[in-house]
Nucleic acid binder design. Structure first.
Lengths: 213, 213
DNA sequence: AACCTACAGTAACATTTATCACAGAAAGAA
DNA sequence: TTCTTTCTGTGATAAATGTTACTGTAGGTT
């Protein structure tokens, strides 16, 4: 298991890995578990070693708006930022594929930042990449129409899983884009007519590789 | 002038202030200056000591989408994140009120993080508050309609200046919300009819204090 | 005064997105 | 099989927003 942590976080120094093993607690969660709610206080930084976590913003009406996914080798930027002052979370985190995580108590954060160069760099890089990702989300909703956002969404999914099939229902996609199922169905149909995708039940195959680029 | 830096950044230690004075370069920019463009490499972290800088995202069509404003005592989070690896900027920064800034060479970032506790805390807090602000922006465009966004926008402005008048033309507002002038005019007129605002040329007075809360 | 320009108001229309209503197909359960 | 549920497709319609076109007005300039 020590081995795998080193594999998943290749940039961590051996000392850091050892420290994590020593101070962190290994935990598993099933798909569907909500790890973090808006308004909740955060007490741990979360490192993902297996599975997939969805980070989203929840609207008052219960709408979910996808921000990004966390996968093995990544960490929750929000938990890092907030732990620094034990702030409240402003987002929701839901397990979408059974996960294994390392929970790092918040007291470790500041300490490791000073003691472990590789931790420091990991944290900064996590901030940077997540900020960038959220800016991209803003771009999409601010400047793009639903059909472009849908294409972007599908591409992101296929990139994430490394395959060209997206196994989601129209309803699930609609929820994450904060629109209605009918709109998604219609737009997907148009994309199929343009030859970009092939639609199956609970699955969308991306055909055009140009589109995937 | 050393004095004022201490006043503007009250949490900085005296040693840190001295170090900043020593290594940073004081610069002034006029309103209208673009300090940072999308795609540009960042070589400095920017501390604002006077004036106001607008941070926005630019669409392909040239549309501007307001993210937030930077004011004295604040720093550009993007410049901090990016400098760590000398990355490209993903945003635009434009001076909206003549500013004075301290430019901190990127090499100082990492060094000070280790040496100055008050710098470390400032950087973390900057990350946190900006991330939060951007999440709020996402909320607004994802879940709210234009009339609500307009109200939020006006409130934010009056909060920022501490007064109840917003001195902007409809066109300027429309640009920042990435909509058209006509839409803003229409919605403002409705708000006036509801007794929320009073419309003057180049100025919107917020009347209802309930609304301002 | 006469003129110009930026700003604001508003009607008419186009487009996009949301909502409602319903029908059929696929998968699973009884 | 039959029943049931979930998923998908699609038309009709409503609502929000974007666009075009035109008018008037306030302020500044000559």
């Amino acid at each position: 298991m020590q081995n795998s942590l080193k594999n998943i976080f290749p940039n961590f120094s051996s000392e850091l890995i050892a420290t994590i093993e020593e101070n962190g607690s290994h935990q598993d969660f099933e798909a569907g578990t909500i790890l973090m709610r808006t308004g909740q206080y955060i007490k741990n930084t979360v490192l993902i070693t297996k599975g997939k976590i969805k980070i989203y913003r929840e609207g008052e009406d219960g709408g979910e708006f996808l921000m990004y996914y966390l996968q093995p080798g990544q960490a929750c930027a929000i938990s890092m930022i907030c732990t620094a002052k034990s702030e409240k979370s402003q987002i929701m985190a839901k397990v979408v594929e059974d996960v294994s995580v390392m929970m790092i108590p918040l007291q470790m954060m500041d300490k490791w930042m000073m003691e472990h160069r590789s931790w420091y760099e990991f944290v900064i890089e996590t901030y940077r990449s997540r900020f960038e990702e959220v800016l991209e989300v803003v771009d999409n909703i601010a400047f793009r129409s639903m059909d472009e956002r849908l294409e972007f969404y599908l591409k992101k999914h296929s990139d994430a899983c490394g395959c060209s099939e997206v196994n989601l229902s129209h309803q699930e996609i609609a929820t994450e884009l904060n629109t209605s199922r009918e709109v998604v169905s219609r737009l997907l149909k148009k994309m199929e007519q343009r030859g970009l995708v092939k639609l199956n039940r609970n699955q969308i195959e991306l055909l055009n590789t140009n589109f995937t680029n």
